[in-house]
């Protein structure tokens, strides 16, 4: 039986006074690729941030890799093990692609070789590596963020609209990277509106509505209903 990676019960998470998550129950096991589906503002991004140990759990219980998300020390332990690709690219505009990827890789104790390999894999090696991030296109910035994620080799991939801003080749590459990471023992949670693409990748689909993880369906059914 697969080990539990994420376990949330009745989780309430507030943004200001607004309950972005309002009693969400959510569980993910090792090796799963879970698709989060739902309308804008439903709480998908907050659910990912809670799983990353970035958003506070104001009520309920939550664990990721067995670490308690309601404590600061637990959140810190979780953060070391997850990688989050959000709408923000989390890159320093004034630094080059190479500087950015190597900096974040070094912070995660990854070696220079892993950073270089990730840049090549994402197509931002070669001449692009010495270009400042401020001079990149949106798609190239996204690829650089992905290179950081790949170099860090997280155990839990949290991807928020990962295909946004990428060309067809980049989208295929993301699917391939997720597939490969899961094959190596990682777990992935993907929030996406591109159901036709992610549905084939996901082992399970969870519907998020009004801050609650409402519905759980099997693979190949994301587009139904």
């Amino acid at each position: 039986m697969s080990k539990p990676v994420v376990r949330l019960r009745g989780v309430v998470s507030l943004i200001g006074r607004f309950p972005a998550l309002a009693g969400a129950d959510f569980a993910v096991s090792e090796g799963e690729v879970v698709l989060l589906q739902g309308p804008n503002g439903a709480g998908k991004s907050t659910l990912l941030r809670v799983c990353a140990g970035l958003a506070s759990v104001h009520n309920g219980t939550g664990e990721v890799f067995g670490f308690d998300l309601t404590t600061r020390s637990g959140q810190r332990e979780v953060r070391r093990r997850v990688g989050l690709l959000s709408h923000a690219t989390a890159l320093y505009d004034e630094l080059t692609v190479e500087d950015n990827v190597r900096f974040w890789a070094a912070a995660a104790n990854a070696d220079v070789g892993a950073a270089d390999a990730a840049m090549d894999r994402l197509g931002v090696g070669g001449r692009l590596r010495s270009i400042r991030v401020a001079g990149l296109s949106a798609g190239q910035r996204r690829r650089t963020s992905l290179a950081v994620l790949v170099a860090r080799r997280p155990m839990l991939w949290l991807l928020d609209e990962p295909h946004a801003g990428l060309d067809a080749e980049g989208r295929d590459l993301i699917d391939e990277l997720v597939h490969q990471a899961v094959g190596q023992g990682a777990t992935a949670i993907v929030a996406s509106h591109e159901l036709d693409r992610v549905d084939s990748l996901a082992t399970r689909t969870v519907h998020v509505v009004g801050g609650q993880a409402m519905e759980v369906r099997g693979p190949g059914q994301a587009g139904a209903g």
Binding site: G53, L54, R80, L84, T89
Partner: peptide, 17 residues
């Protein structure tokens, strides 16, 4: 300002510094 831009503070927290 460079940390506040484009989610870098979150990335600093996630990086385990």
């Amino acid at each position: 300002a460079v940390e506040a831009a484009d989610g870098n503070l979150d990335a600093l927290r996630l990086a385990g510094f």
